[in-house]
Amino acid sequence: MAIHERSLVEPERILRKERLVVDGVDVSGDWNLIILPRVINDYDLDFAKEIINSPDGKTINQCYQCSYCTASCPVHNYWDERYNPRHFIYLARLGLIDELQKRADVMWRCVSCHKCTHRCPKGVLVEEVLKVILRTMAKKGLIDEYPSKKFDKFFTESVLEYGRIEDGELLFGWIEKQGYKVFKDPILKKPIPFLGETPEWLKQLTIKPIKSMNIGFLVLNAKHMLFHPRTKNWSRFKQVLRKVMQEEGALSH
């Protein structure tokens, strides 16, 4: 007998016998599979409350576990079937933190394609809810650093500082965060591409088109890397933004 969403059941709880005879009746093939029951007593109901209280997470209670989100999810379908939005919502509502923690290595993998939210028949903002679950776990220190959070923070800090982002800074700054030694000019302390360490693909990617590209494009981007584009009249707004983010606890974790 097939088990639906088998990856959700621990292997040691699945009992399967090749031949099973009960009271003299051979039931192999149909009834030879048993999933052992489990008892759960360490749940945290406050966890779900915190999610419901945030404006982007309050639709979590509309979920009726139909799994349309999981069926739509490209990460579930094409990458790792352990990534299961329906199950994450289920666990968060029950407050089974340790079960969520077991899946911490895949939980951050959502690519924000919004197929789940779009197709949900109950109007749950699934993608938003999943991000709120992650955000809440990070806030409570229940989950370790994960790559996308590092990038999100890096991105947001750039927005907060300048009001705008710059592609070169994001690319080379991220490369630096991954452990490559990026060369920086001594005066402005900005990364100079290709003088330090660069991943091989990026070198290859840029060397070829540099020959064919028009010089205006390269000059424009080099200028932006050295002198970050800024929003004018930003400083007062920046302070308000920083205050709001501090209230949310977004800057500390």
Partner: peptide, 25 residues
Amino acid sequence: EDYNCCGAMESKNVTFMGTMLLNAR
């Protein structure tokens, strides 16, 4: 004139009210 970044898909994972403010501006 003088717009700011929308926060894209990244900032919304860090702060809710912050992205509302960025776009409201």
